[in-house]
Structures are given as C-alpha cells and as structure tokens.
C-alpha cells in the first residue's frame, strides 16, 4: 500500500516539479519555518492566556490574531505537501513523521473539542480573572502538542530510518 502511494506520488507532475526546480527545497523550508513562527507565536500566546497568564487581555482579543495563525497553517500545509510529494519515500514509513501527524491531530482535536464545549464561555470571559482548570488543561495540551509537532518535524531525518 505504502509502495503504491509512493509510486503514484512520484509519477505526478508536482513531484517532478519539486525535485527538478532549483532552490525549491530551501525556499519551501524557509516558508515552512515562517509558518512555524506564526503558528507557535500565536497559538503560544493563546495557550498562555488559557493557562492564566496575561489576565489583563480578554481571550476574545487574542482570537483576533487567529487569521494570521491560519496563514501559518496554510503555509505549512502547502509546503508540507511539497515536501511529501517530492520525496514521499522519506516520510511514509518514518515513525517520526507519523508521530508528527499524531500530535498535529491532538492539537487540532484539542482546540476543536475545547471550542465546541467552552466556546461561548471563552468569548465572553472578561479580562482580569483567572481561568478555570479546564482552560488550563486545554492550554497545556495545546502548547505541548505544538512543541511535539516541532520536535518530530525537526527530528524526521534522525529518528526514522527512511532518510
């Protein structure tokens, strides 16, 4: 199955474009790191507020930065697809890559669950008061999973044996 996916991806025009365009890889990596700064910078701010830091700032105010976090996510999805299409064999059997995907899912499900469950309370929470334990837990889970995504992403060439 994995071999079929690798073979198919490598036969695509995108894959050839990625491999054959000079400077494609460092350019995509640079954009990927800019995306990292946007996501970790903004998610980190949000998570720290959930954990009870910067209480003078209403949570809803920090959420105004979220379109920029979304820009970061988009940058990283696009460049991520570029990496994967270019050399799928480096990722598909790589434990570190699957760990990275796992923690991406944890981060996404955590915030989706949290907003579904506490969204209204979150948006109307005024400045100045401490956050309840449920908010603190969601903040810690988020910040830890984003750092795990970063860890397994950077350790991709070293933890797996596919490189």
């Amino acid at each position: 199955m994995a071999d079929l996916i690798v073979a198919w991806l490598k036969s695509t025009a995108l894959s050839r474009l990625v491999i054959e365009t000079p400077l494609m890889w460092p350019t995509a990596e640079t954009l990927h790191f800019i995306g990292v700064a946007l996501v970790i910078g903004i998610a980190g701010l949000f998570d720290l507020r959930l954990m009870g830091f910067m209480r003078q700032v209403p949570v809803a105010a920090i959420m105004q930065l979220r379109p920029w976090a979304a820009v970061g996510v988009l940058l990283n999805l696009v460049t991520g697809v570029i990496f994967f299409a270019g050399t799928p064999e480096q990722y598909i059997r790589n434990t570190a890559w699957w760990a990275k995907v796992f923690f991406l899912l944890v981060a996404t499900l955590n915030i989706a669950f949290f907003e579904t469950r506490y969204g209204r309370r979150l948006l109307t929470m005024p400045a100045g008061i401490d956050t309840p334990a449920s908010f603190k837990i969601a903040g810690v889970v988020s910040i830890v999973s984003w750092l795990a995504v970063l860890y397994f992403g950077r350790m991709l060439p070293f933890l797996g044996n596919a490189f």
């Binding site: 990292v36 700064a37 996501v39 970790i40 910078g41 980190g44 701010l45 750092l147 970063l150 950077r154």
Partner: peptide, 14 residues
Amino acid sequence: HTIGLAVLVGASTA
C-alpha cells in the same frame, strides 16, 4: 535551535 527559533521569532511576530 529550531525550538528557540519558534519561541523567539514567534513571540516577535505576534
């Protein structure tokens, strides 16, 4: 070095 980058450039970017 990558984690430091995310912390430093992330906080600066926000």
